[in-house]
Simulated assay, not measured.
Amino acid sequence: MSERFFLYDDTVETKTRFVSFMGDNQRFDLAVIQSDRYYGKQLVLDIQSNRFAIIGEDDLKEPGYIEHAFNLNEENAEELRDFLFEIV
C-alpha cells in the first residue's frame, strides 16, 4: 500500500448540543456542533435521517436549502428553520 496523503488531519475543540423536539408532523433529533471551522457556521446532524449540513444564517435564508439538505417538505423544513434561527 502506498503512503497515505492527508489533505489535513486536525483535532479541534467543539461544543456539541444534542436536542430533540417534536414538530407538528415530525420529530427532530439533532446534534449541533460548533467549532472554529466553517467560517462561524454550525454542523447540524439529523440523527433520525442520517443527513447533515453546514448551516449559517445565510443558509437559513436561502430558499429551498433546508428542504434539500434534510429532505423535508416545506412545512417540516419551516419548523426546523425556525428552531435553527434561534440558535445560529
Rank of each mutant, 00 (worst) to 15 (best):
K61V: 02
L80P: 02
Y38R: 11
P63Q: 08
L80K: 04
R37I: 06
D24I: 07
E74Q: 10
Q42K: 13
R51H: 14
N73I: 03
D9P: 02
D58E: 12
K15D: 06
K61M: 12
D82E: 13
Y38A: 14
M22P: 00
Q26K: 15
A53P: 03
A53T: 02
F83R: 06
D59C: 00
V32Q: 03
V12N: 12
E62S: 10
F21S: 05
K41N: 14
Q42V: 08
Y39V: 03
I47L: 11
I47Y: 04
V32I: 15
T11S: 14
A53Y: 04
D59H: 01
L72R: 07
Q26T: 09
V19C: 03
V19F: 01
E57Q: 13
Q34C: 00
L72T: 06
A53E: 11
F85Y: 11
F5L: 12
R37H: 12
L30K: 03
E78P: 02
F70H: 02
T11C: 07
S35F: 04
V12T: 14
Q34W: 02
F70S: 01
R27F: 04
Y38K: 07
F70V: 05
L7Q: 01
L7K: 01
F83K: 07
E62G: 00
S49Y: 11
N50G: 10
E75R: 11
D10S: 06
N71D: 15
G64R: 05
F21L: 11
R17Y: 00
